[in-house]
Design a protein around this nucleic acid. Structure first.
Length: 599
DNA sequence: TCTATATCACCC
DNA sequence: AAACGGGTGATATAGA
């Protein structure tokens, strides 16, 4: 029972707030219900000067989609609560794997799931419009809004009671719930900070978006005439293929295959395809128009924590910089006196696989710093003194295999992706299974357990369990422990760092973007790496340190992604802004030094 | 003209 | 039937 837990008070909370794309939320009102005393608190704008409850460990807070509430706390200058549970996270955890469809349950649909009576969605829509209208609200409207907010608190309370058995099943489920709640505070901080964007260049870029596409097309399409404006007309392509006499693969639907790989493959035999292939590749990177940038030049969008079945964040790819093609990361530019650092875990999933399976040989490969070459050596494919320089091709094949294995790739897929014969692919897979026996034992055990309907669980209690009659992809089960524990590691690192006061702009699955004054950035990086290493040992066990790598950029430079640099330059040239400084990324040493930081 | 579907490309 | 995990979203085309 939640009530039996050692808390002096248990507050169920809900805020109403005005939220505009890319801006900070503006709290309108708050309703709280304390479950032990039965007390209700209703605060309207203007009554917010002090939190009406203690925020220390003695008090538990319960909300639905908690990050929104903590964003309001930040807006009001209130400290984060020390203990909280997000029922959204707990509900989707309880349902994870039980259904074929992936969905983002709302408060109302969650209530409906448990048969809890609530207001209708129509009324909710009306009230939401009234609130988002931004006011001012008449006294009668204020009463209505507070009533509406209180109704959500009542529904949240009932959902808490419905979910209690899932949350209090055991120490891990409860501790995990508190840990996930703790992360929602970090989410609020990160969403509050957002990412620094070069608004001037972004404005020009968006203004010239179609012109840029048309210019890219114009350079190439004059010899094909396949585009109508920015639209690729498939019928013209079909006619061209027929006229040029190029045998072209078709999809089961009968349409011509138009994916990148088909173009790439055809271009090898028919060189006249190549320019078209390259054009389509460039155009593919020209997407994203809806970056959510606030008036302060920071890009903010919801991280959608716990949005996937591995519990990774699932932010919108159109509203956030890291969902866009890599070249657009050059829109990231620290302000005067500021610096940004992108710190990522090196081969995080391999490390997780090695540590959690207890495969010493795989961990040894990870620790060597080059797990691909290490595999080639351990599997007897190359001599023990082989290096990246001496056995480039062998290493590349080993890399394809090692990466693919994590996703459950088979021999056919490996042969296709690595461009090798099926027999060689089979041989590589067999060697992998032989070399990393312990890992395979562990992985197939997980896989079989999942297929049998048993529950999979991460170190801190995120779960997945197949519902009866659901479709299960066995390869998904193979990868789930790596990805889900990786997500847990990320959450821990975000919590540790935001609690230390480090400005974390956002997580990127296996990386964190942090920011600070140029003079402090070295210390911030050291603290970030230390927290990420600590998070890795917390998830994987003592001694299992996942290494980190870092890229730094300081004002007036802009971020530059190696893989996207050329595209950025092309686009800037077309925009006629060659004067825009493209900046340089200073790459810090990749060795990991432990820096004493209190976590 | 609008919407649904299939396909494809991007991210980690 | 497919055989590479987790995702979001834009676009072209078919259909209403």
């Amino acid at each position: 029972m939640i009530g039996a837990l050692p808390y002096r008070a248990i507050w169920v909370l809900d805020f109403e707030f005005v939220a505009q794309n890319g801006e900070h939320p503006i709290p309108v009102c708050m309703v709280g219900h304390e479950l032990i005393s039965g007390r209700w608190v209703r605060l309207w704008q203007g009554d917010f000067s002090e939190p009406p409850f203690p925020l220390d460990e003695s008090t538990l807070f319960v909300t639905f989609s908690a990050a929104a509430e903590w964003s309001c706390f930040i807006a009001l200058g209130w400290p984060m609560p020390a203990r909280c549970i997000d029922l959204y996270a707990e509900f989707i955890r309880s349902q994870n794997g039980a259904h074929d469809d992936h969905w983002y349950p709302s408060l109302l649909s969650t209530a409906a799931f448990f048969g809890i009576d609530t207001m209708g969605t129509d009324h909710k829509g009306v009230m939401r419009d009234l609130i988002l209208g931004g006011g001012p609200w008449s006294p009668a409207e204020q009463v209505d809004i507070l009533k509406y907010c209180a109704a959500d608190v009542a529904a949240t309370t009932k959902i808490l009671h419905a979910l209690e058995p899932c949350i209090t099943t055991n120490d891990l489920s409860l501790g995990g719930a508190l840990l996930r709640g703790r992360y929602t505070c970090a989410v609020a901080r990160m969403e509050w900070h957002g990412l620094p964007v070069d608004v001037e260049v972004l404005t020009r870029l968006l203004g010239g978006w179609d012109a840029i596409k048309l210019q890219l097309i114009a350079d190439i399409d004059q010899q094909y005439g396949m585009f109508d404006g920015t639209r690729f007309v498939t019928q013209r392509f079909e006619a061209w293929v027929a006229k040029a006499g190029i045998p072209w693969p078709r999809l089961p639907s009968g349409r011509l295959a138009q994916d990148d790989e088909t173009f790439s493959e055809r271009a090898k035999t028919y060189p006249q395809v190549m320019p078209l292939h390259e054009l389509r590749r460039s155009l593919g990177k020209m997407r994203l128009r809806g970056l959510a940038v606030g008036t302060d030049g920071r890009c903010r969008s919801s991280l959608m924590p716990f949005g996937s079945k591995t519990s990774r964040n699932q932010p919108s790819t159109s509203r956030s910089v890291f969902g866009a093609a890599r070249w657009m990361r050059s829109l990231l530019k620290p302000g005067p006196g500021r610096a940004l650092a992108y710190v990522d875990w090196v081969s995080q999933e391999i490390a997780i696989a090695a540590a959690l399976s207890g495969d010493k040989v795989l961990w040894q490969a990870y620790e060597s710093g080059d797990p691909y070459m290490a595999f080639a050596i351990q599997a007897g494919l190359v001599p023990a003194n082989a290096t990246k320089a001496t056995h480039k091709a062998e290493r590349q094949r080993a890399k394809s295999l090692v990466l693919g294995v994590g996703y459950g790739m088979g021999a056919e897929g490996l042969a296709a992706s690595a461009g090798i014969h099926i027999d060689e692919a089979r041989d590589l897979l067999m060697r992998h299974k032989y070399t990393y026996r312990r890992f395979w034992e562990w992985a197939t055990l997980n896989q079989n357990a999942g297929l049998l309907g048993l529950q999979l669980q991460t170190t801190f209690g995120w779960t997945w369990q197949a519902g009866t009659g659901t479709k299960v992809n066995p390869r998904s089960l193979l990868n789930w422990p790596m990805q889900a524990n990786g997500a847990e590691m990320m959450r821990l690192a975000c919590s540790l760092l935001t609690e230390q006061g480090v400005m974390v702009c956002c997580p990127v699955h296996d990386a964190l973007l942090v920011e600070g004054p140029i003079d402090d950035i070295d210390f911030i990086i050291a603290a970030t790496r230390a927290a990420m290493e600590r998070a890795s040992t917390l998830v994987l066990g003592a001694g299992y340190v996942v290494k980190t790598d870092v890229e730094v950029v300081a004002h007036p430079n802009r971020y530059r992604d190696e893989a996207g640099g050329d595209m950025w330059d092309r686009v800037m040239t077309i925009l006629g802004h060659q004067g825009v400084d493209t900046g340089t990324v200073l790459v810090a040493p990749t060795d990991t030094k432990t820096v004493p930081v209190v976590c």
